[in-house]
Every structure is written in structure tokens, then in C-alpha cells.
């Protein structure tokens, strides 16, 4: 079995589920012949035909609204937005309709849609192509927000998201699309939603992160190990609803926590995790929780994005600060 990238794992999951469930439909801009701007849907048109792999007119609200209608008929649409920065016209459909349909019809109509989008900066893209606004979705009741950080988790979590009976926002870190490869068996096995993944076991400090920042966080943990600090790394993976139990259990063990995310700091998901630790686990803490995040700025154009992204050094500095707290 050849090793595959994260974006290839997305394709593998879509193809697997389309082969096994005729109700799965892929739609979006350029998802057909072009195979998507990141090639996440490459080969699907040839295998499944234009009825199930649908190039849409260029209108993001329409993509989201169509998916709501299709899902109500029992289809399982997987709708692609080309970049997270272009999801915003679809927000009305996602927030006012997809997230609420089950509730407002008391379960009569449901909305099992997966809204996929690449997100995050660090790929030298033009403006509006580098957003990390996952917190906007995480704020909305009725949604799930799922973010993979490896090829295996992209495969397993996307399968789980398609099979989930409720709407899922599935955000793919574009910086990791082709960063690493691993063997991902095409066995149709889903990974659990609503659960954190502990990527590295440690005893001195808990590092909580998700998406592309898993890369810098794991690197920091390795460096810290050489300095004698044993870091536990948690990939939150489903940021809504949050698996706070796994995070609290880790913090109970380590007594220290740093939260790392690429998104702007204010009202980021890190703020909520930090608040939950304070509410439920204050007595575990030997030092204040620290956050290492993007700045509260508009994501800069490509030339400055390397200054915007939280770095491995920033994470190590924050860990050292926490470790040295008296």
C-alpha cells in the first residue's frame, strides 16, 4: 500500500463512501473534470458520473442551500467550498437552515450534509485564501466542526462526518494537504467524532491544538523532550462539540496547559477551552493556561504570513513560561 497525502486521503474517503452509499453526492465549484482546485475530488467524475459529481454554478450560498434541500430528500451531499474565505455567502444557509432544520421540525427533516473547505494560511495564496475562522461555526448550535491533521484522520473523520446524521463543517488544513504521507488502508473504517486524539503521551504539560498547528506543536514537543520536558499533545479534531473530558483528564495529570491555534486570539476556540479548564479543572492547575495563537489581525498577504503563524519557538517559549511559573 502506497503512502498517501492528506488531500489524497480526502479523495480516498469520498470514493470509498460513494462506492458503498449511492446517496452520497459531491457538489461544488470545479469538483468535476478539474477534480477541485486542490484535486480533492480528482477521479470521482470518471468513476461516478455527472449526476453524483456535480459542478455547480459559481454561487456559494446556492451550494449550501442546494445541499440542505438534497439532504432533506435523504441524499448525503458533500459540498465543497473552494476556500474557507468563500464560505461566507453560504453562512446564512448553514446557520439559519442546515444547523436548525432538525430542531425546528422536531426531527421530521434532518440535514446530514458535510460542508468541506480548505482552511488556514501558509501556502502563499492570494488574499481571502488563508482564513481560520472555525470559531464562527463552533459558536453555532446544531453544527459539528471537524478538523483532521493527518492523512489517516482525514480519511477516518471524513467517513464519520459523511455518515453522521447531522451537518458537519469539515475543515481541511491546506498547509498539510501535501506535507506528509502515511499509509491509510482503504478499509472504510471511520474514526470517532466528538473525541480528541492524544498524539503524544507526556507528564509535564498538556499541549492542546488542532489542524495545521499540530505540525509545529509536535515539533515543539520533540524539542522539549530533549530539554527534559515531557509534553502531552492533544489534537482536538472535533472542535464542536468539544471533548473536554479528554483535555481535563490530561490537565489533571500534567497540571499545565498551553493551547495553540492558528486563528485570531479573540473569541477563538482556545478561549473556550481555557474557560472550561478554569471552570472545571482550576484545582488541577499549577500555572495559568497560556494561549499561542494567530494575532488579532487580518491574515497578512503571503509575504508576512510567516510572521503571523504561531511558530515552534513561540510554543516552546510559552511552555517554558508555564513550566517556570512559581
Amino acid at each position: 500500500m502506497a503512502d498517501i497525502t492528506l488531500v489524497e486521503a480526502v479523495t480516498q474517503a469520498l470514493a470509498y463512501e460513494m462506492r458503498h452509499d449511492p446517496d452520497v453526492i459531491v457538489l461544488g465549484e470545479d469538483v468535476g473534470k478539474d477534480g477541485g482546485v486542490f484535486r480533492a475530488t480528482v477521479g470521482l467524475l470518471d468513476e461516478f458520473g455527472p449526476e453524483r459529481v456535480r459542478d455547480t454554478p459559481l454561487a456559494e450560498s446556492m451550494i449550501a442551500g442546494l445541499a440542505v434541500g438534497m439532504a432533506a430528500q435523504g441524499l448525503k451531499p458533500v459540498a465543497e467550498f473552494q476556500f474557507m474565505g468563500f464560505m461566507y455567502p453560504g453562512y446564512d444557509q448553514i446557520i439559519n437552515h442546515a444547523s436548525r432544520m432538525r430542531n425546528r421540525t422536531r426531527g421530521r427533516i434532518t440535514c446530514p450534509v458535510v460542508f468541506r473547505a480548505p482552511y488556514g494560511c501558509g501556502i502563499h495564496a492570494p488574499e481571502h485564501h488563508s482564513e481560520s475562522t472555525e470559531a464562527i461555526f463552533a459558536h453555532i448550535p446544531g453544527l459539528r466542526v471537524v478538523i483532521p491533521s493527518s492523512p489517516a484522520r482525514a480519511y477516518g473523520l471524513l467517513l464519520a462526518s459523511i455518515r453522521d446524521p447531522d451537518p458537519v463543517i469539515f475543515l481541511e488544513p491546506s498547509r498539510l494537504y501535501r506535507w506528509s504521507k502515511q499509509a491509510v488502508p482503504d478499509d472504510g473504517k471511520a474514526l470517532p467524532l466528538d473525541k480528541c486524539f492524544t498524539l503524544r503521551v507526556g507528564t509535564d504539560i498538556t499541549l492542546v491544538t488542532w489542524g495545521a498547528m499540530v505540525k509545529e506543536t509536535m515539533a515543539a514537543a520533540e524539542t522539549l523532550a530533549k530539554e527534559g520536558v515531557s509534553a502531552e499533545v492533544i489534537d482536538v479534531a472535533t472542535i464542536k462539540p468539544l471533548d473536554i473530558e479528554t483535555i481535563l483528564a490530561s490537565v489533571e495529570k500534567t497540571g499545565r496547559c498551553v493551547i495553540i491555534h492558528e486563528a485570531a486570539r479573540t473569541c477563538g476556540v482556545g478561549a473556550d477551552i481555557s474557560a472550561l479548564i478554569a471552570e472545571r479543572g482550576l484545582m488541577y492547575l499549577q500555572a495559568p493556561v497560556q494561549r499561542v495563537t494567530g494575532y488579532d489581525t487580518i491574515v497578512p498577504y503571503a509575504r508576512l504570513e510567516k510572521f503571523y503563524l504561531p511558530s515552534e519557538k513561540q510554543i516552546i517559549d510559552a511552555v517554558n513560561k508555564v513550566m517556570e511559573f512559581a
Binding site: G69, P77, H97
Partner: peptide, 11 residues
Amino acid sequence: PLHAVGIATAI
């Protein structure tokens, strides 16, 4: 109207 076209697509 977008829901209607989604339903119509399924049909």
C-alpha cells in the same frame, strides 16, 4: 428557493 432546487435535484 435554494432548498426547492436542492429537493428538485434529488428528485
